[in-house]
Design a protein around this nucleic acid. Structure first.
Lengths: 243, 243
DNA sequence: CGCATTCACTTGTATAGACAATCGAGATCC
DNA sequence: GGATCTCGATTGTCTATACAAGTGAATGCG
């Protein structure tokens, strides 16, 4: 194929990355003008259709907005929720101007419970990695994250230090997310959850059960319990009751 | 512009509509093969780039899936939750093989509460339509739907009989959905909700607050409270805590 | 039979050019 | 000054073509 380099990266993808990097570093602030299709043609020595494709895809992802006869511009960062992005709780908390910290309660290998075995495609009692973390927003406990991880997909999971990097961050790096299941429930916290989130047993909680997949198969199965807070759902979603 | 007709419809859009119509009428069932780019070129007398664009956009919308070297195929209808589908609770219940019924508790015009006024872009105490409905799955109450509707967008709302047609069905018909906000919370039911959903005050509930828009502006603002059930979230979503 | 090779078909990336539609700014006219 | 016109810049649609890359089926060989 006609490629700008030997790394296998298509040219339009290289242009997208360039534009995204300019936005991320703050060089191109919100609502600032992005080079026109013609300018990108010159800059990257590509045809207009290729430059156009980069701008087009970024527009579909909500990174840019374009107006015929005027130009292309950087969109508001908040609408940049790409396709299968699952946000990192640390990023969320920092985006609100707060301080995120995490307390590692448990990090171990244990025999796989039946329910988890089914979800991750493992055999019952086969070893599975497990982490239990409390996420704090400033000094307030916000979320209890119980996560089972498939050792075949992520063999070095137990060696990580999750006080400095969330499991989500680490897993995103080693096993890029391709798919996810979600179930959301309203539950009352058990004694253990009450203790870690400093709740009373009558405060309702949202529990999000999330199973993530990467190219090779099921990666992790997580229970994210949050103190009765409100969550905004965005993106293209459908919501259906389960049996 | 080079156009296949004088209606102002671009050629690629005409091809998309053709493909969608074949799928909707059942002519092209799930997983069946869609004409190749080359075949569409001949059929519509367009260049390959134009035929390709139609297939491409339908793929991005989840209507088709394509594999290099193999072909393009009709995707599963369930993943056709494409852009902004919000399911109808009656359809959901019937999809589970159960019987849906609805009890109309209240249907009236009332002065707009402040919170609703902001959400719908109305003035405080200006009249707003309000409906309160209990949805049953077989004989079990499943969801309490409290909905405020913008009279400017849907002037005939109060004339409908919501025992036979859900508000969602009616609104979809008269004001096609273009956008929606969602907030999900875990709450304990108030006395009124307990009564209608036959709950005890200690059973946690999921409350989905949904604001819908059509082309002309905000259409409705609904509070959907469900007895502690589990909800499956699908589609491309992001979930973020609110302030 | 089992295996590798070849080949046709399909999708993916890219080019160079054309005309259409829209907008904004500057020039022109009254 | 204010309204109108023109024109350049920019994005939107489309063509015709080329080569790359993946798949699957047919073919040929040992």
């Amino acid at each position: 194929m006609q490629r700008s380099n030997d790394s296998g990266t298509p040219k339009f993808a290289a242009i997208k990355e360039f534009i995204l990097s300019q936005i991320e570093t703050g060089n191109w602030p919100e609502h600032s003008r992005v080079p026109s299709e013609h300018a990108l043609c010159d800059q990257f020595a590509v045809s207009r259709m290729t430059a156009r494709r980069a701008l087009q895809e970024l527009t579909e992802q909500g990174v840019l907005y374009r107006t015929q006869g005027v130009g292309s511009f950087v969109a508001s960062p908040k609408s940049q929720s790409a396709l299968l992005e699952i946000r990192n709780i640390a990023d969320e908390i920092q985006a609100r101007g707060h301080f995120h910290s995490a307390q590692l309660v448990q990090l171990t290998s244990l025999p796989c419970p039946a329910l988890v075995a089914g979800a991750l495609g493992l055999n019952r009692n086969e070893p599975v990695f497990f982490s239990l973390i409390v996420h704090y927003d400033n000094q307030t406990p916000l979320q209890l994250e119980a996560r089972y991880v498939n050792p075949k997909m992520v063999p070095l999971y137990l060696q990580q230090d999750f006080r400095y990097q969330t499991p989500h961050e680490y897993l995103s790096a080693v096993a890029p997310l391709t798919e996810a299941d979600h179930i959301i429930e309203a539950v009352l916290p058990d004694e253990f959850t009450c203790k870690h989130l400093k709740l009373t047993p009558h405060e309702p909680c949202l529990r999000l059960t999330r199973r993530t997949f990467s190219r090779g198969g099921a990666v992790s199965f997580a229970f994210l319990t949050s103190a009765g807070s409100r969550y905004r759902l965005g993106g293209h979603l459908n919501i259906s009751p389960t049996e």
